[in-house]
């Protein structure tokens, strides 16, 4: 900076130059502190979760935790987590059944089948969808998609797994589409040229050369989408309800892990009770869930990157 000022013609003193050097030495420290904020926060979260979850696991036997009976407010409560895991897995599964094919198709279209001009218009629009607050999606699922689906499936409950699953899938499409498109776009043009020169059609270039070469990024986008689905709260709280029965019937209400936490932090569990500490146990499991997903994503990315050079 100090050097730039001299080019304006003003006479600048040497001291401003030394000040710049000091700043250079100070800056990494400032940035280090900044980078520690998320790391320390994460540690803080883990410690809080683990400490309070411990109080839960000290009282409730593991055999009860891994059971299908969830009734935290009964006179003799039972804290089986499997109904919640089931609700989370089913809603996420439905979401990914929507998000993966549509997102990947969008990415392929943008990267391989359209002009730069069209891509520059469409991609930002898709990315805007990712910015819509999830409460809006939740409301949309409950008051628009569910009634629409009831016309097709008369047995569908007012609260059900199908509708929020589908809407969550739509919410995740931009994540899959945008990241996959980035990955495909990063594949060198020379590979495409090589494939075209061998007599490939556009479809063959996209499917047999570009997609395999971009596989690490594509899979990372899937895993990120799944983490989003697993952690998503608002849509499922609103539209899938709070039934704690263990079933695989996606036309009926189920509660997800996140939904359970929302229900019980909004006042049903008195502080200090086992029910209260169960929130931390569920939170910890959710944390471990997404942590594992992220590690898997990193491992896959690394493996494919080694192979793709």
């Amino acid at each position: 900076m100090a050097i730039l000022h001299t080019s304006t013609g003003k006479h600048h003193r040497i001291p401003s130059v030394t000040r710049g050097r000091k700043l250079d030495r100070l800056m990494p420290l400032v940035l280090l502190v900044a980078s520690m904020v998320p790391i320390l926060t994460t540690f803080g979260i883990v410690i809080t979760l683990a400490a309070d979850a411990w109080r839960f696991f000290a009282v409730v036997p593991l055999s009860e935790v891994f059971s299908t009976e969830l009734a935290p407010l009964r006179a003799e409560p039972s804290f089986g987590i499997l109904p919640l895991v089931n609700g989370t897995v089913l809603t996420s599964l439905i979401a990914m059944l929507v998000a993966i094919p549509v997102g990947l198709g969008t990415a392929l279209y943008l990267s391989e089948f359209t002009s730069n001009r069209v891509r520059k218009i469409i991609k930002p629009i898709i990315e805007v969808i990712a910015g819509v607050p999830t409460i809006v999606y939740g409301y949309f699922a409950y008051s628009f998609v569910t009634p629409l689906l009831i016309k097709l499936l008369p047995g569908l409950g007012a609260k059900n797994v199908l509708s929020p699953g589908l809407v969550m899938g739509v919410m995740i499409i931009p994540i899959v589409a945008s990241l996959s498109e980035d990955a495909m776009n990063a594949v060198q043009g020379s590979l495409r040229e090589g494939a075209y020169a061998l007599g490939s059609t556009r479809f063959e270039v996209a499917g047999k050369v570009v997609m395999p070469a971009a596989m690490s990024g594509i899979i990372a986008s899937f895993v990120l989408g799944i983490s989003r689905a697993v952690g998503e709260t608002m849509i499922v709280s609103i539209a899938s309800g709070s039934s704690k029965r263990f079933s695989f019937d996606i036309t009926q209400s189920m509660q997800t892990m996140t939904g359970y936490i929302v229900e019980f932090t909004s006042g049903d569990a008195a502080s200090g009770t086992t029910g209260y500490y169960s929130l931390y146990a569920v939170g910890l499991l959710l944390f471990i869930f997404t942590l594992i997903l992220n590690l898997v994503s990193q491992a896959i990315t690394r493996r494919f990157r080694l192979r793709a050079g």
Binding site: L191, G194, L198, K208, A213
Partner: peptide
């Protein structure tokens, strides 16, 4: 089909990120 009849080799080597075998077999396969 025209490009199948006319092979091309580029300035920088551009093998596909696959095995040696699959690189050669790519063309015949498609």
């Amino acid at each position: 089909l025209l490009r199948k009849k006319i092979g091309m080799v580029f300035q920088k080597p551009n093998p596909f990120p696959m095995t040696v075998y699959d690189n050669i077999a790519y063309g015949p396969r498609i």
